[in-house]
Computed example of a mutant assay.
Amino acid sequence: MTGTTTHLEPRTRTRTERPKLYKVILLNDDFTPRDFVVKVLKAVFGMSLDEAYTVMLTAHQRGACVVAVYTFEIAETKCARANEMGVSAGFPLTFTSERED
């Protein structure tokens, strides 16, 4: 061989970053009927009756409860839909979302 050397470049791999997750939180209020909260949890979040009742009671006892964890767009959409159901029924039902650490 004639004095030729080959240098290999290190390969760089790109990894797609996992999307940030957001918690949907149900805030307790003393005006929205429990049955209505359960109805919203079932309709918007696809919970069973038992799951919805447990989440509603946890929010009632502790002041707030994490309902589910989603990507940003899904969390915001579900919060908006649930809050709209409360407003259209005349209740101060409030769902919010915050980034999960």
Rank of each mutant, 00 (worst) to 15 (best):
M1R: 05
T2Q: 14
T2D: 14
T4I: 11
T5Q: 10
T6Y: 13
T6S: 06
H7V: 14
L8C: 03
L8Q: 11
L8W: 07
E9R: 13
P10V: 04
T12P: 02
T12W: 00
T12K: 14
R13W: 08
R13A: 12
R15I: 12
R15A: 09
R18A: 15
L21E: 12
K23T: 05
K23G: 00
V24P: 06
I25E: 03
L26E: 02
L26C: 07
N28T: 12
D30K: 08
D30L: 06
F31Q: 09
T32E: 10
T32G: 12
T32Q: 11
R34N: 08
R34W: 03
F36S: 07
F36C: 09
V37H: 09
V37F: 12
V38N: 07
V40I: 13
V40Q: 10
K42S: 05
K42C: 04
K42P: 01
K42R: 15
F45K: 03
F45P: 14
M47S: 02
M47L: 14
S48A: 09
S48D: 06
L49Y: 07
L49A: 10
D50K: 09
E51W: 05
Y53E: 14
Y53V: 09
Y53F: 07
V55Q: 05
M56P: 02
L57Q: 10
T58F: 00
A59W: 06
A59E: 05
A59D: 04
H60N: 12
H60R: 03
R62S: 13
G63N: 08
A64M: 14
V67S: 11
V67W: 08
V67D: 12
V67A: 09
A68Q: 11
Y70R: 12
T71C: 04
T71D: 15
F72D: 04
E73Y: 00
T77K: 03
K78G: 00
A80V: 01
A80S: 11
R81N: 03
N83K: 06
N83A: 04
E84G: 03
E84Y: 05
E84K: 12
M85S: 04
V87K: 13
S88P: 01
S88G: 01
G90P: 04
F91T: 03
F91G: 00
P92V: 08
P92N: 08
P92L: 06
P92R: 11
T94F: 13
T94C: 11
F95G: 06
T96N: 04
T96P: 02
T96C: 07
S97V: 02
R99M: 15
E100L: 14
E100H: 11
D101P: 15
D101N: 13
